[in-house]
Amino acid sequence: MQIALFIIFGLLAVAGALNLLFQRHPINSALSLVVVMMSLAVLYWSLGAEFLAAAQVIVYAGAIMVLFVFVVMLLNAGEEDRTHGSKIAYIAGIPGAAATFCLLSFVFLSERKQLGSTEIGGYLTNAVSNITEISHTLFTSLLLPFEVTSILILVAILGAVVLARKEL
C-alpha cells in the first residue's frame, strides 16, 4: 500500500510539477500546482502526518493557491511570451536545476542505507494521535515561534493592505 501510494502520488506530483513548468498559461500552472499539493497531502498522510495532510489541503490548496488563481483572474494574466530572456533562462535554468537534482539525489542515494525506510502511517512516540503530539510540542517547546508567528501575520496583513490598497 505504501509503495502504491508513493508511486501513484509521487508520479502525480512530478507530473504536476512538470506541467507547471511546461504550461504557458498561469492558471494552468496554478492548477498543476494544486495537483502537486494534493498529491503531497496524500504522501504526508502516508508518512503519518495526518494533520499536515489536512493543513496542506486547507492552507495550501484551499487558500494560498486560490489566492493565486484569484489574482491571475483579477489581473487577467495571459499566456507568457517566448522571449529572448526565456531562451537565456532555458540555457541557465535547466542545467542548474539538473545539477541541483543530481547533487541531492546522489547524496540521498549514497546515504540510502542509513536513512532507513518508511511504514504506512508511521508512528511517532506513543502519543494518542498526531495532532495531540503536534499541539503538545507546539505549546511547550516551540511556544515562542508560535507566538511570534502572530507578528509575522500582522506584518503580512499590514503589508498587503498598504501595498494593494488603491491610492485615492
Binding site: 492548477l31 489541503v57 486547507i58 490548496a61 484551499g62 487558500a63
Partner: peptide, 8 residues
C-alpha cells in the same frame, strides 16, 4: 479541506 477545494 474539501470544502476549501470546492471554490476552484
Amino acid at each position: 479541506g474539501v470544502t476549501s477545494i470546492g471554490v476552484y
